[in-house]
Write a protein that binds this DNA or RNA. Structure first.
Lengths: 343, 343
DNA sequence: TGTTAGCACTCGACGACATTGAGTGCTAAA
DNA sequence: TTTAGCACTCAATGTCGTCGAGTGCTAACA
């Protein structure tokens, strides 16, 4: 257990390092007002904190730098909620003023502003559409062999799939099929579509549609690729501003990571809802050992549907990022809920 | 006008520099077989070539480096068509083997392979859909105030727009509207939709649809945002491999450029069709002064619909890139033509 | 017993300086 | 016109000494 003074010193060190990006020495801390302690005492405490694993020393005659464990303690116990400045608030509000047309645009905007305000790389996932309910399905034949299946959700999202048609299907059969699908599957959440197709629609199809088997297989195609995760990145280049990434090699690995959407989705997909912070090695990917991720969830109608977050160096302005993320996630939730529920 | 020997020397210098990324000296060229000339002679010729603006010298006691003008002469006059190696061909063919589902996937794949084979950043634009013809339009009401308009083209592409409905529209009116639109506008190219709407559909609407004015404005919305250019990037991180981008600052500017889609589209949108090469300052953007762009068009049914290209350092393996681009653009054209015309 | 002043020590950063070598330009001879 | 030879240039590299921020330890102090 850390003493009050140790906590205080750790706090000061982390704060300082976050601002300066340079190892902080005992004198710097001692000069900080409020603590009437000499640098020698601080040195002793620092040595203790290092032994406990909260601090690290780049080399013998340098100041101290927080370790992953140090940052962890900092975010868990020392950070206090930060209020955003007038200016930042004004910046953030921008998004919520403009009229929304497409949901995608709001998300895109959010990512852009998030990155702009924090100066880190922003990542937004989602919104998930598994929970969305089927509003309408349509099949538009393009020629004898192909058709486009279009699924509209109650939130206004449109997904489409190219289908290969069985040989010699008259348009009338397709029309019948579409009618059955719309009457039977309306308001069904997308993730249930396939199972409901077999359980409830198949029998009806067998009676009215010919050729039954092939059509069933075809239409299943249309329900397959729903829910592909969407990912929005902004401010990739911001990483380069960080002094810890002056080395070209490190930047390279990170940029390679930023191109692999599947990896990113794994990293940012926030299984628990709410605020998540992963610091340095906690990310378990080697490239990320000098990086932290902060994410939070956003909601539609109270249900978590996506993730908004940032990627930055472990030396991250956690307090500010958390404040900004909270604010944005709240705003996003409100806007999306309004939009999806039809105001 | 350059003498044969000068051309030969210029050729050798550019070739060498492309491979080594280091200023090439007179001795290096003289040792190259085939030219029985001493290094002193080469030095004289080099001085001449420099005076003519084809070469540059980083500093007095260094070898020569091609200038923009030098590269330009090289690609215009010295390069000879290059055949791809067995291995590269095998790599490239990959894309064309797998069955296509969505057009997007083919494009995405093309960008990926292009970047992989060349080791430069690849950019694919399009395909343009202005020329695509309307196959079907559908309006799905989500609630009292909003609806989704869905436009399907004859190529199977689906575009959707969120519409604000006028107050109190009965579904029957919407249905009437959709019927009119489908009967009047079928097979019309997308870029003509708006003008045709006013010229041919408006009068019909006035007779059958109520409220006529508001509905006209609403439906126009749906035809507005068609043809948003699509851009696919791959291998951004590859830039960092280039020795000329060891400096973090230069990389930063470039990565910022790579995040601005509108800028990229301007750069890559190849107004003339066919092969285009822009070297260094020819790009007129300052960030690009050390970069070259090579693009070519791809076609559907003989009409250019998009651009495929790469972005790399001015010290670019032009011969190889041109060969790869030609091959890919041809393949892409074939696949897309097949897909769009329904085989 | 905890705190602090003092001091020797460490080590990266930085600048001065010499060395090296690839490459040039010029001159004079072939 | 070509080429051998030579003096010259200049980035790159390495070595060395200095500087200073920062430490750890010890001994004195409250």
């Amino acid at each position: 257990m850390l003493s009050d003074r140790q906590r205080c010193i750790l706090h000061a060190i982390v704060d300082n390092y976050i601002r300066s990006a340079e190892p902080v020495g005992s004198r710097t801390i001692s000069k900080r007002e409020g603590l009437g302690i000499s640098s020698a005492t601080i040195r002793n405490e620092m040595a203790d904190l290092e032994e406990l694993g909260y601090l690290e020393q780049p080399h013998t005659s340098a100041g101290r730098v927080p370790s992953t464990k140090g940052y962890r303690f900092y975010v868990d116990n020392l950070i206090k909620p930060q209020n955003l400045s007038e200016e930042e608030l004004a910046n953030l509000k921008q998004i919520f003023v403009d009229r929304i047309t497409h949901v995608e645009q709001v998300i895109e905007q959010t990512a852009a502003i998030l990155s702009q305000v924090t100066n880190y790389t922003s990542v937004v996932l989602g919104p998930e559409i598994f929970e969305h309910r089927l509003k309408h399905i349509q099949i538009v034949p393009l020629n004898e062999q192909q058709a486009v299946a279009i699924v509209v959700t109650h939130t206004g999202r449109v997904e489409n799939t190219l289908l290969d048609l069985p040989q010699d299907i008259p348009p009338s059969e397709i029309e019948k099929l579409v009618n059955i699908l719309n009457s039977k599957l309306k308001d069904v959440p997308l993730w249930q579509l396939r199972q409901r197709l077999y359980r409830e629609v198949a029998s009806e199809m067998r009676r009215h549609v010919e050729p039954y088997e092939e059509m069933l297989v075809t239409i299943e195609e249309a329900f397959k690729n729903e829910g592909t995760d969407r990912i929005f990145l902004h401010g990739r280049a911001k990483i380069i501003n960080q002094p810890e990434f002056r080395d070209v090699e490190k930047v390279k690995d990170l940029f390679e990571l930023l191109e692999q959407n599947d990896q990113l989705i794994k990293l940012f997909n926030n299984r628990e809802t709410g605020l998540m912070i992963r610091i340095g090695q906690e990310n378990s990917i080697d490239v990320m050992k000098n990086c932290s991720i902060v994410t939070t969830s956003y909601y539609v109608d109270g249900k978590p549907v996506g993730t908004v977050g940032i990627l930055g160096p472990t030396r991250l302005d956690y307090a500010k990022v958390i404040a900004v993320l909270d604010y944005l996630a709240m705003g996003l939730s409100r806007i999306l809920t309004d939009a999806f529920e039809g105001k």
